[in-house]
């Protein structure tokens, strides 16, 4: 269970980007964060694994506050949080298999990690995961030769290699075509159920969120304006989530 409580963050003094953000995400469910551009979706997601240092609040993953963790605790917690990205962020010249094996690096000593010493079990597991995401034939291909959808699936396999409790997905389908989008989202939903993972996902596309998410968090200008199951998302709630700030509305009228 992920519990985020009263999270604040401001990048500069004038504008607060997150204001007392609280929500929960449960294992076995896909939780989608939706909202207009600049609402703070990415800031929330990156605070959860502390790639962004927030200002105040609590982030509890199975009752352990990641904000209080010291350097080595943070590494340990991060190792159990997989992350996939809009641009996949794989190492292009390496093979798909090597990129998946990178999911184990966080569990290794500095020395073994430096040399990339993987056990036979780990290699077999990586190959199995690639098979699971439908890329068995591409295991030994360089990642920069794969299509976007294939790279994103390598990214998912890399995240699974970490044996995660949670997978954070930062706009995972923003660069994908509709067919790859469906494939990737199907895999994520299936994973949440079969492995009882917490899947926390930032989405631009409302229709995808409504199709795939069990739980929805709506954010507007750094404030949570909706949290609840997908079916509770009424048109009024949607309007509140995607409401434009006053100043922008005025400019739009002027035009």
């Amino acid at each position: 269970m992920l519990k985020v409580i009263d999270l604040d963050k401001s990048y500069n003094r004038q504008k607060q980007s997150l204001k007392a953000v609280s929500f929960t995400a449960k294992p076995g469910e896909v939780t989608a964060i939706i909202g207009p551009s600049g609402a703070g979706k990415t800031t929330i997601l990156r605070s959860v694994n502390q790639l962004i240092k927030d200002d105040a609040g609590q982030i509890l993953l199975d009752d352990e506050d990641i904000r209080q963790a010291n350097k080595s605790d943070l590494r340990r917690i991060r190792h159990h949080i997989g992350m996939i990205f809009q641009n996949y962020n794989l190492i292009g010249p390496l093979t798909a298999l090597e990129n998946v094996l990178h999911g184990r690096l966080g569990a290794k000593s500095t020395f073994a990690g430096m040399l990339g010493l993987y056990s036979a079990t780990e290699k077999n597991e990586a190959a199995k995961l690639l098979q699971d995401v439908g890329l068995a034939d591409f295991a030994l291909q360089r990642c920069d030769q794969l299509s976007g959808g294939q790279q994103q699936r390598v990214g998912i396999a890399r995240a699974l290699m970490q044996h995660p409790k949670m997978i954070l997905c930062d706009e995972p389908i923003a660069s994908l075509d509709p067919k790859s989008t469906k494939l990737v989202m199907d895999i994520l939903r299936e994973l949440a159920q079969s492995k009882q993972l917490i899947i926390l996902i930032n989405l631009h596309q409302l229709d995808i969120a409504q199709t795939y998410a069990d739980h929805i968090v709506g954010i507007n200008q750094g404030t949570i304006v909706f949290e609840g199951p997908e079916r509770a998302l009424t048109p009024e709630k949607l309007q509140a989530i995607y409401r434009q700030p006053e100043t922008k509305a005025v400019t739009a009228d002027a035009n």
């Binding site: 590494r75 917690i77 997989g82 999911g103 690096l105 966080g106 430096m114």
Partner: peptide, 16 residues
């Protein structure tokens, strides 16, 4: 950043 986010140390990131 992707590797940092999965808890990998500095030298493994450099070499891998």
């Amino acid at each position: 950043e992707a590797l940092k986010a999965s808890g990998v140390r500095f030298w493994p990131i450099v070499f891998q």
